[in-house]
């Protein structure tokens, strides 16, 4: 089955009914196409409200589509919702754990939702609890954020899913907890689990995903492997220039006109020059400098701040 298409979306659209005086209704997903093969790790990248989570809910068969077509595991989510959900694991953005229950009880109850027998759950618990160190009998309330996230991931694996959907898996976690989770997700991928994740973080997308779709306003605005996207849209270096208040606009115009090279972007607090050679651009800038020198920093684009 390697290489088989697990998810196929064509012109996928989701419109929510009008709320709070918005007569038009809200088009959260606006006619997107994508395909996902077995064993792939696919990421949706984009700002809040871009339609990432909305797209995930369609794939998870927990929300009907408004238009276009969607096949998940070869089935139609509108008709075969329960069967699709039985073969998918979901890690929601807010953990949705039963806080008053212990780690073990959370996993057990969730397993029962899938109709798994006690014996099967007990067998799988042994593996899954390894993710949670020695916390099996602790109440969820007492766990740290990173540990809760690990429990949510362990919980989503109880039905041995073919596709794992992760909605912002590491948002709000400290760097160490993020690395532990990445490591775990990477191993799952190696074991053949297909991953679909949403994230705001470029570094997470680069670490985990084979293929990325950048979403904005309900549409896919760019798609490809992290390498392809970087080659197509990211320059090797980004020069950041800060000017005294009031001089910024003039300075950016001068930079553009002065042929500093690369794309110049005016931000509220600084001017950013996307270029392959930051030092050269800075040297060029000195030719068209104003009376006061700006603070500057040039370097490779930081992954979290380069948003082109």
């Amino acid at each position: 089955m390697s290489g088989a298409v697990l998810v196929e979306a064509r012109g996928l659209t989701k419109t929510y009914p009008p709320r709070n005086g918005d007569a038009q209704g809200h088009r959260a997903v606006d006619g997107i196409d994508f395909e996902l093969g077995r064993g792939e790790a696919f990421g949706f990248l984009g700002p809040n409200g871009a339609g990432k989570a909305s797209t995930m809910r369609r794939v998870a068969a927990i929300s009907p589509v408004s238009g276009g077509s969607l096949r998940v595991l070869g089935m139609d989510p509108a008709r075969d919702g329960p069967e699709i959900r039985g073969r998918i694991g979901v890690v929601p953005q807010d953990d949705c754990l039963d806080r008053e229950l212990t780690v073990r009880e959370n996993l057990y109850i969730y397993g029962r939702y899938f109709g798994l027998s006690k014996a099967v759950i007990r067998e799988r618990l042994a593996d899954l609890l390894a993710l949670l160190e020695d916390k099996a009998d602790e109440q969820v309330e007492a766990l740290s954020g990173g540990m809760r996230r690990r429990l949510t991931i362990a919980r989503s694996l109880i039905n041995e899913p073919e596709i794992l959907l992760l909605d912002e898996p590491t948002t709000g976690l400290d760097p160490q907890a993020r690395h532990v989770l990445w490591d775990r997700l990477f191993r799952l991928k190696q074991e053949g689990v297909t991953l679909i994740l949403t994230t705001h973080y470029m570094d997470e997308a680069e670490q985990l995903c084979d293929r990325l779709a950048v979403m904005d306003g309900g549409k896919i605005v760019a798609e490809g492997s992290p390498r392809e996207l970087i080659d197509a849209h990211v320059t090797r270096e980004v020069l950041e220039l800060r000017f005294p208040t009031g001089e910024q606009e003039d300075a950016s115009t001068r930079l553009r006109d002065g042929g500093v090279g690369g794309r110049v972007e005016l931000l509220p607090d600084r001017v950013v020059v996307y270029t392959d050679d930051g030092e050269a651009a800075l040297a060029m800038r000195t030719h068209c400098r104003s009376s006061r020198s700006p603070h500057s920093s040039a370097g490779p684009p930081s992954r979290t701040s380069s948003s082109s």
Partner: peptide, 9 residues
């Protein structure tokens, strides 16, 4: 929300 992602309707 967590129960809704399982086969339960």
């Amino acid at each position: 929300r967590s129960a809704a992602t399982t086969p339960l309707e």
